[in-house]
Design a protein around this nucleic acid. Structure first.
Lengths: 238, 238
DNA sequence: CTCATTTCCGTACGATGTACGAGAATAGAG
DNA sequence: CTCTATTCTCGTACATCGTACGGAAATGAG
């Protein structure tokens, strides 16, 4: 493979991934399943973070040999893709759109946020992964239905969904980092001391003022709702 | 370290990172420098992506032994942090705020977008990294100055900057993925075939319609500008 | 000089993703 | 039934990764 420029783009064949023939099989019966393996990987990521998801640990969790996993997914990248779509199955759609598409779209975003908070590895995983599986597509279908009352064309609707997802992922990544910092007081104190030192150097007057006049503390939820409102209420202006 | 829950949160001591004593030194004179090492790492990431940044390759690029790098950065995580801040030095601020803070803030976002497009590994790196270095702080200082005409309190201003950065990173990550897919026609065709197959299964009528009525193709720049406008013009409503 | 201090880096170790290929299990053909 | 093709299982092996360790080399202080 000459000039293999993988950069940071995922490279998984969607057809081989999602359109595998579930048909007739000769040979030995499978001892495990894609689902069981994916669930094990998700459980690991939920409990210990994405970097705990190693082929060895996943295999141990399902009781398989390491190399057996490769009968179900051609490589680890694919397994990550399976994980992302698997948890998207939890994005239970609450019913048909109400007709008030702005409210519906906000509900969609709030669902996504709760979902990503439950699986904190999702924002990082989504940065690269980009082949929508069946569960992701079901949710996308719902989002498109929500957008039907708008007069956006197809490409624009897809773009709105992608932007919304990116926005939620970005917000939740930040939210998670804040929460993690707060959970480790030693680290939080070190960071506070560092920022205080910077603010005291005289070269950052705006930062100094911002830190000294913090205002009321904002909940992450309130911040999210506010920015989401700005984003969505401004939509369809053209 | 009991209960080491690292999850996906970075864990670098900001004081040891950015407040190192550059003072008097006894012992042997350094043969390299943080800057040279960081630049080598950045060059690697720019050319071949984040995953090409290995200690061995960075060392080879600066002409050092692998373990010599550890005299300049305690671990790879720290080196990544250095990379992020190093490239932030390119975010040249164009001058004092004009007074029209909405326009200024849009300029800030456009600067960030161009910056991330020049260093496509940045969105992924920013998902985890969260200790602002001097260059990042200089840019933050500018952003805060831009927000001075608003009557937001300190915490709110910081939140606006974080959200804006997250939004830009999310958009650019998506933009990069699109561009990468377009650059590999084989992959793009496979994905198109896959989506067409899904749309043809009858269970995704909205998707089918969105794909069949794409509308005029949108440039990434235009999409960015549009969503950015929505986000910023809605600001300060309360 | 001596000695404390700092940098340099070869070697080595554990962990990772996965290529390879030998065995085991199963279904159809005869 | 036997034979053969097919499929799954997984132990072994390897390249590559981050980095711990410790000795050699260089430098400033006393």
């Amino acid at each position: 493979m000459p000039g293999d420029q993988k950069s940071s783009a995922a490279s998984v064949d969607p057809e081989q991934l999602w359109l595998r023939p579930t048909e007739f099989r000769r040979g030995r019966r499978p001892s495990f399943s894609r689902e069981a393996i994916t669930e094990a990987a998700v459980a690991l990521a939920d409990a210990e973070g994405l970097e705990a998801v190693t082929m060895r640990r996943v295999a141990a969790r399902v009781g398989a040999g390491v190399m057996s996993l490769y009968s179900y997914a051609p490589d680890k990248e694919t397994l990550l893709e399976l994980m992302v779509d698997h948890v998207s199955g939890e994005l239970a759609v609450t019913g048909p759109p109400s007709g008030d598409w702005r409210t519906d779209l906000k509900t969609v975003a709030h669902l996504q946020r709760a979902h990503m908070l439950r699986h904190p590895w999702l924002p990082a995983a989504l940065t690269t992964r980009r082949v929508p599986g069946p569960n992701t597509l079901a949710f996308l279908e719902h989002a498109l239905a929500v957008l039907r009352p708008t007069r956006l064309d197809g490409a624009a609707k897809l773009e709105v969904f992608a932007q919304l997802t990116a926005f939620v992922a970005g917000h939740v990544a930040h939210e998670i980092a804040q929460a993690a910092a707060a959970r480790s007081p030693e680290r939080a104190a070190a960071e506070a001391r560092y920022l205080a030192a910077v603010a005291a150097d005289g070269h950052h007057p705006e930062l100094a003022e911002a830190l000294s006049a913090p205002g009321r503390p904002l909940t992450a939820e309130a911040t999210f709702t506010r920015f989401l409102g700005r984003l969505i209420d401004g939509l369809d202006a053209d």
